[in-house]
């Protein structure tokens, strides 16, 4: 058992990494579950790219500075989210096309800005994160974002579920449809920014979507999915960090690959809608 516990007991940087990853796991996975249920899984990916120019501007202004890059990332993400939503609501362009247009513009801008200044090492930090070098400020930020996310989701749970399941009905009984949609996109952006501190912009989406996708094969209720997804994300974080420690692997990809393993196992063996249920069905019932 020592290989399981010692790395975390002996090294402060591993404890910090664990805390950071668990915070992300708790905050990002419920957001991922709702992304999945709204068939917006790829929106997370697009948003992650959209954040890049903001982080790059922060980086250009202040160097590898957490605060500046966070503010820049959140600002860029929110601008893209609001523009996308506004175009989808007020023109005939659908949300997916509108988002694709804005995130591509945003991404090109980001790559341009990053390449203007900065070494490849810094760029690697932005792209792949620094989970083993989280300082106090970063940890505080991650935990704060998780808290804000969980409290917000708890507050708007009913309108959010309704906006996913029957948006037209929500519009017929209240004015929540627009606000809850934008609030949700805001949470997506916040959690991606949290994720890129630790896992990098490209990997941050993984911890959001993979556990949610795995959970779909185990649970048939939203509550069940949220619980399974958070558990998968937390266990993946521990497994990824341990693999990273013992085998000298980069930690971000190790964590996401752990989550990916859970997803593949769920895909094959999960009780609900999986390959096993499809190809080896259990005996049917009387009624």
């Amino acid at each position: 058992m020592s290989w399981l516990i010692d790395p975390f007991a002996d090294f402060a940087f591993m404890q910090r990494a664990l805390l950071g990853c668990l915070a992300i796991a708790l905050g990002a996975t419920p957001v991922g579950v709702f992304l999945l249920l709204r068939r917006m899984s790829l929106t997370g990916d697009a948003m992650a790219h959209a954040i890049l120019p903001g982080a790059a501007v922060g980086y250009l202004v202040a160097g590898l500075n957490l605060g500046a890059m966070t503010i820049g990332g959140v600002a860029a993400g929110l601008v893209v989210a609001v523009l996308t939503g506004a175009v989808a609501r007020f023109t005939s362009l659908r949300e997916d096309a509108s988002l694709a247009a804005f995130y591509l513009i945003s991404l090109a801008l980001g790559v341009l800005l990053v390449s203007l200044k900065g070494s490849n090492v810094d760029l690697m930090h932005v792209l792949f994160g620094t989970v083993l070098a989280l300082d106090d400020a970063a940890l505080t930020l991650l935990c704060a974002i998780t808290t804000v996310t969980l409290v917000s989701l708890a507050l708007v749970y009913r309108p959010l579920v309704l906006e996913c399941a029957d948006p037209r009905f929500l519009r017929s009984v209240s004015r929540w449809s627009g606000p809850v949609h934008f609030l949700f996109l805001g949470l997506v952006v916040l959690n991606l920014v949290a994720g890129f501190q630790a896992l990098g912009t490209l990997m941050a989406v993984g911890i959001m979507i993979l556990p949610a996708a795995a959970a779909r094969f185990w649970a048939t209720s939203i509550g069940g999915m949220l619980a399974v997804a958070a558990t998968v994300a937390a266990v993946s974080s521990v497994a990824g960090l341990l693999a990273s420690y013992h085998a000298g692997l980069p930690s971000g990809p190790a964590i996401i690959l752990s989550a990916g393993t859970f997803y593949l196992l769920s895909l094959v063996f999960g009780p609900s809608g999986s390959l096993a249920a499809r190809f080896w069905p259990r005996a049917h019932l009387e009624t």
Binding site: V161, V173, T220
Partner: peptide, 22 residues
Amino acid sequence: LSEVDRSFPLSVQAFVAMGLWH
């Protein structure tokens, strides 16, 4: 054409209870 996402994991009870929004 209702826009109900019927694959959404909701129970009949939870779905009908939305009618109590007021």
